[in-house]
């Protein structure tokens, strides 16, 4: 069986600065992968290269057997790749329900080559908002939301695109203990519905609880990849995190 996401020799530079260098990564269908690394290690650049916000100069990204290199972000979303942003980026002038409508109109409809009737779209938006516990605020604007509600909206919008792979980029930064638990439960539930999830996170507790496998990026290179318990004991990883 081939992997859902297959990254080979991925490299990205910004001028003289090497942000990513020879990244190899495979994610199996239905897997829960944790991706960790210190600040500036290239995690966000990797997410951006996978999602098409940035274009990689070297190597390739394959998704569901198809080469993604050169495709724009919206084309990748239509192929089943969705992401949430580190800092929530809601559509500020649209209601919550309308926020979810965008990916349904532009990713789901494009993929299925047919327009869903308006009523079905609206039901789907409200259903998804219900799943993340925002049903009552469906007609409010994003500025009325709290921090955690904003994160939930961000995840719900990514889910609305009906992705095969969801990349959650630091969806829990700044949240309280119980709020973190809520998001983890949400992501595990999504995974149970068959969505492959990559979680990028600094909160180690969340990563350990969530991940079936853990990959570590340091200074643009992948230095470890394996079972979470083994990876956190890996000498190189400990050195990278704690310093020598």
């Amino acid at each position: 069986m081939t992997a859902l996401l297959h990254i080979e020799g991925l490299g990205k530079r910004f001028g003289g600065f090497v942000a990513l260098d020879g990244i190899e990564l495979e994610v199996q269908d239905g897997e829960r992968l944790g991706l960790i690394g210190p600040n500036g290690s290239g995690k966000s650049t990797l997410v951006n290269c996978i999602c098409g916000t940035l274009q990689n100069e070297q190597g390739s990204v394959r998704f569901a057997g198809e080469k993604l290199d050169g495709l724009l972000a919206h084309e990748r979303t239509r192929r089943g790749l969705a992401r949430s942003f580190q800092l929530p980026r809601p559509f500020a002038s649209l209601s919550l329900a309308e926020n979810l409508r965008i990916p349904i109109l532009y990713a789901v409809n494009a993929r299925n080559a047919g327009a869903l009737p308006t009523a079905a779209i609206d039901a789907r938006c409200r259903g998804l908002l219900g799943e993340v516990g925002l049903a009552e605020k469906a007609d409010r604007l994003p500025r009325d939301l709290t921090q955690i509600e904003m994160r939930k909206l961000e995840l719900a919008r990514a889910m609305a695109a009906e992705p095969k792979l969801l990349i959650a980029d630091e969806a829990m930064a700044g949240l309280s203990h119980t709020e973190v638990d809520e998001i983890i439960a949400l992501l595990i539930r999504l995974n149970g519905q068959g969505v492959t999830v990559i979680m990028i996170e600094h909160i180690m507790r969340a990563v350990m609880e969530f991940s079936q496998r853990l990959a570590v990026l340091v200074a643009g290179k992948k230095i470890a990849d394996g079972a979470p318990k083994d990876v956190v004991r890996d000498a190189e990883v400990v050195r990278a995190y704690l310093g020598e």
Partner: peptide, 13 residues
């Protein structure tokens, strides 16, 4: 108008 990067990520060309 609201957020171009988020629009791209939501599948908007």
């Amino acid at each position: 108008r609201d957020d171009e990067a988020a629009a791209e990520a939501s599948g908007v060309p």
